[in-house]
Every structure is written in C-alpha cells, then in structure tokens.
C-alpha cells in the first residue's frame, strides 16, 4: 500500500494550509463557538461559562479532524461560520458596551 516516496520530503501547500487552518483556524472557531454557546445557553452566567468552556476541547478536536477529512475547499467554509459565531458571542459587547 505505501508509496515509497515520502510525502513529507515536500510539504505540499495544501497540507500546510490544512495544518494552519486546523490549528489556528481551529482555535479561532472554538473560541467563537464557546463564546456563542456561553451566550446562548439558558443558564446563569457562571454555569453557561463553565459548561461551554468544558465542551470546547471536544469541539476543537472535532474541528481538527474535520479539516483533515474534508477536501480543503469544503474546509474553508469554517471561516465564515467562525465569523458568525464570533458575532453571536461578542455582538452584544461590540454593539452595546460590556455588561459586567
């Protein structure tokens, strides 16, 4: 099955792209997801925060796997979705000032 020529001797641009998307994009996506979930959960502030943050590591892992499982062009959909999540999470703050 294995191809004797090592894939790793040349880091393909697409592989590098996936790694960047998975690691950096993944963190950004998870950040947005956690913020959005924390805001949307119908719980007290503290509980929503803890619940959303505890889940975040599973979300990040899932995202990384998804980036490597899908064709790269499909994976790029993550970027607009991330922006949407960030909007849900931080929208109220950006628009109306912080509620401390």
């Amino acid at each position: 099955m294995s191809n004797p020529v090592s894939k790793t001797s040349v880091v393909w641009p697409s592989t590098l792209g996936r790694i960047v998307l998975a690691v950096a994009g993944g963190y950004l996506f998870t950040y947005g997801f956690t913020a959005a979930l924390a805001r949307l959960l119908p719980l007290e502030r503290v509980d929503a925060l803890i619940g959303a943050t505890l889940l975040s590591f599973a979300v990040y892992s899932g995202f990384v796997l998804w980036v490597f499982a899908r064709p790269l062009r499909n994976a790029l959909w993550a970027l607009p979705v991330t922006l949407l999540l960030l909007l849900i999470g931080f929208g109220p703050q950006w628009l109306g000032g912080v509620q401390g």
């Binding site: 998870t30 925060l49 999470g89």
Partner: peptide, 27 residues
C-alpha cells in the same frame, strides 16, 4: 481531557471574554 480541564479558563478564555468582558476577578 481532564488534564486540559484543569487549566480550562487559561486555554479557552472565550466565555470569560464574552460574558465578563475578560474580567477574571468578577468571575
């Protein structure tokens, strides 16, 4: 997973930033 959970607020401060404006003392 539990190893990550120990420092969960350091690793993922998103909810703190969103709900408390990053004010950890308030949290």
């Amino acid at each position: 997973y539990t190893g990550l959970v120990i420092f969960f607020l350091i690793y993922m401060p998103a909810a703190t930033d969103a709900l408390y404006g990053g004010d950890r003392d308030a949290l």
